[in-house]
């Protein structure tokens, strides 16, 4: 079993420019778009451990739940909003990467210490920018994004209005 663990740490495909990289099939499987459409989200998630992994055990709360159900619920909700730095294609709540595990542990530790989820999210945004949060903030540049649904509905009703006839004019 230890043999299995050490194999994971063996050098893989040097040279990587940065160990965040995942499988990059340059000449390999140039699949059809349809095929890729299906597997791409999957590859994002499963391909991450292609980099060498740390031999350290997981951080305390990386893969363990907080005993307080309400706190665990808050922590989980926050994790689902935080984007994984390594795989970039999913939240830290469902990533196998070590850094995502450490981030889960950080989130659970701080929630257990009584910190509010929004404060933790702000702390992360201060360090990594808005990229880290899957929920875009409400700022000047993202305002169109949040107004969009109402705008589209209003536009639709305006378009449809011409198709209706008055009730009286039967």
């Amino acid at each position: 079993m230890n043999d299995f663990q050490t194999r994971r740490a063996e050098p893989v495909e040097a040279p990587f420019s940065h160990s965040r990289m995942w499988v990059r099939a340059k000449n390999g499987p140039s699949t059809s778009s349809g095929l890729r459409r299906l597997i791409a989200p999957a590859l994002l998630l499963i391909a991450t451990p292609a980099l060498a992994d740390s031999l350290m055990p997981d951080a305390q709360w990386a893969n363990a739940q907080l005993p307080d159900a309400q706190q665990e619920h808050e922590a989980k909700a926050l994790m689902e909003k935080i984007r994984c730095l390594v795989c970039q294609g999913q939240s830290v709540a469902d990533s196998d990467s070590d850094l995502a595990g450490d981030m889960r542990s950080l989130i659970r530790t701080r929630i257990a210490a009584g910190e509010k989820p929004e404060a933790i999210r702000a702390w992360l945004i201060e360090r990594y920018g808005n990229w880290i949060s899957y929920e875009p903030p409400m700022t000047g540049i993202t305002a169109p994004l949040w107004i969009l649904p109402l705008l589209l509905l209003a536009l639709g009703v305006w378009l449809a209005r011409g198709r209706f006839r008055k009730r009286k004019a039967k």
Partner: peptide, 8 residues
């Protein structure tokens, strides 16, 4: 120590 580009 487990990072390959670090060797590079």
């Amino acid at each position: 120590s487990w990072c390959i580009p670090c060797i590079a």
